[in-house]
Amino acid sequence: MWSEEGIEFHSGTAEDVRFVVSQISLEVKDGFIYDAVPWNNFNHAYGPGSDVPDLLEQARTGDERSSDEALSKLSGRLLQQGTSSAAGALAIPFLVRIVVALPFHRAGILRVIAGLARRQYFGDGSRIGLLRAARADDQIVFEPSGYLANWSVQAAREALAADADLLLPLLDDFDPEVRQASAYALAAVPNRPASVADCLRARFQNEENPAVRACLVLAIGQLAWEERHPGTINQMCAWWQDSNQPAEVRVCAALAWLCLTDGPVPNNLRAFLELSATDDLAPLLESTPWLDHIVDGGFRRCLDQMFHPDKYPHFTSFLD
């Protein structure tokens, strides 16, 4: 990459997975015409993506056990230890259609889709990292294959954006785990499209499950993170200060507000969050996709990272 004058040398070519994903037609997606996609040119954690079409088809057409086996293999190959892959970005249009059609495994598939559309976490629950999907100016990161992970995540996010309308109805699924996972996936859609933001807010107004409410608040916050949307910042501030809101809503709104703003942590917000780290609330919050990856403390570890960033310089250096 360095000898070829930087990462943009192959931009917009057949070696750029962002370009390749953008060229996959609706006919190919809807018809599951896998042969129209150059799988062999892009890798996952175990080599070329040429084995992905068969696994996708097994997941789509097999019985519940066979489908589960295929999806487990896809997750291990495309999203090994939370690391995205170029082959995974190519798979997203098909995974989206599979999750809509299948009556089972929906939450798991959605989490794979969401993971492909986010940078690797590395346990990062900091103000900089908790709601950060990926940006074009993130530090350069490589996949195990040597491919540019920045491009894979960008391609995955754009693929997700192109088909976000197919996932929006899953916010109303009868299964709360599917509602959580769909909010997590939709939060990675770039450029904060109004349709996604409006649907997340509408679901929040009607949601009765505490864990799903927590996810919806964090998803609304993440969707606003890149542009620091002023209306969302004000909404999060109002929610966390509203004693009539449930505890999980107030806490997640406070976390989102911290991620969407700079400057010192206000004393009243710090005191509120420290008092909220109870044995009852912490497990509920740690069941959300945003916090369940933070090892050795979960919610309390997240607070420590937000309140004492000097103790975690590796997160800041990784992102800057």
Rank of each mutant, 00 (worst) to 15 (best):
F142A: 15
F142W: 12
E143A: 14
P144M: 11
P144E: 09
P144L: 10
S145D: 12
S145C: 11
G146E: 08
G146M: 11
L148Y: 14
L148E: 13
N150F: 06
N150A: 09
W151S: 15
V153G: 12
V153N: 10
A156M: 06
E158D: 10
A159D: 02
A159F: 08
A161V: 01
A162I: 02
A162E: 14
A164V: 09
A164W: 02
A164T: 11
D165I: 13
L166Q: 12
L166F: 11
L167A: 10
L167W: 12
L168D: 02
P169H: 09
L170H: 10
L170G: 10
D172L: 13
D172K: 15
D173F: 05
D173I: 06
D173C: 03
D173Q: 06
D173M: 06
F174I: 10
F174Y: 05
D175K: 07
D175A: 14
D175S: 14
D175C: 07
P176C: 11
E177P: 00
V178M: 06
R179Y: 05
R179M: 06
Q180T: 13
Q180F: 00
Q180G: 13
S182E: 02
S182H: 01
A183H: 01
Y184W: 13
Y184G: 04
L186R: 05
L186H: 03
L186F: 04
A187L: 05
V189I: 08
V189N: 06
P190N: 09
P190I: 10
P190C: 10
R192F: 01
A194T: 14
A194Q: 14
S195P: 00
V196E: 05
A197E: 13
D198T: 15
D198I: 13
D198M: 13
C199D: 09
R201Q: 12
R201K: 12
R201I: 06
A202D: 14
R203Y: 01
R203M: 03
F204V: 00
N206P: 00
E207H: 04
N209W: 03
V212L: 07
V212H: 07
A214W: 05
A214G: 11
C215H: 11
V217A: 08
L218V: 03
L218K: 03
L218T: 04
L218Q: 04
A219N: 02
I220Y: 03
I220S: 08
G221E: 06
Q222K: 12
Q222W: 01
Q222A: 13
L223Y: 01
E226N: 13
E227F: 03
E227I: 10
E227N: 13
R228L: 07
P230Y: 08
G231N: 11
G231A: 12
I233G: 05
I233D: 02
I233P: 01
N234P: 00
N234R: 12
Q235H: 08
Q235L: 15
C237P: 00
